[in-house]
C-alpha cells in the first residue's frame, strides 16, 4: 500500500477539523473538531513509524505524548467552557468578543 494513501487520509481528516473549528458556534463542538485535527497528526506519526520501522518506535512514542496532551487540553478547555457558561449562560464563541480590539 502506498504511504501517500495514509497521508492523504490524515490531510482530509485535518481539513475536516479545520472546517469544524471555523464553522461551529458551540464551544464544545469546536473542541471536538480540535480532537479531529490532533487525530490526523497521530495517523501521520503512526504511518511514518510503520514506514521507518528500522529507526525504532519514536513515531508511536510521540503519538502517545499527543494523546496525553490532548487529554490535558480537553480538561482545561472544558473547565473554561463551564466557567464561561456560568458567567454568560451560553457558550457561543461568537459572543466572546470582550478581548477583541
Amino acid at each position: 500500500m502506498p504511504l501517500s494513501y495514509v497521508l492523504v487520509l490524515a490531510a482530509l481528516l485535518f481539513s475536516i477539523g479545520v472546517y469544524g473549528v471555523l464553522a461551529r458556534q458551540h464551544a464544545v463542538l469546536v473542541l471536538l473538531s480540535i480532537e479531529l485535527m490532533l487525530n490526523a497528526v497521530n495517523i501521520n506519526l503512526i504511518a511514518f513509524s510503520a514506514w521507518l520501522q528500522d529507526t525504532g518506535v519514536p513515531g508511536q512514542v510521540f503519538a502517545l505524548f499527543i494523546i496525553a496532551v490532548a487529554a490535558a487540553e480537553v480538561g482545561v478547555g472544558l473547565a473554561l467552557v463551564i466557567l464561561i457558561y456560568r458567567n454568560r449562560r451560553n457558550v457561543d464563541v461568537e459572543g466572546l468578543s470582550l478581548m477583541k480590539w
Binding site: M1, P2, L3, S4, V6, L7, V8, A11, L12, F14, S15, I16, V18, Y19, L22, A23, A47, A50, W51, Q53
Partner: peptide, 27 residues
C-alpha cells in the same frame, strides 16, 4: 468561507504529500 479554507488546506497538503512521497510503499 470555512469550507473554502478547509478545501484549500486539503488541496495544498494533499498535493505536497503526494508529490514528495510518490512511490513509497508501506511494508
Amino acid at each position: 468561507l470555512a469550507a473554502i479554507v478547509a478545501a484549500a488546506v486539503f488541496g495544498v497538503t494533499a498535493w505536497v504529500l503526494i508529490d514528495s512521497f510518490e512511490g513509497v510503499e508501506l511494508p
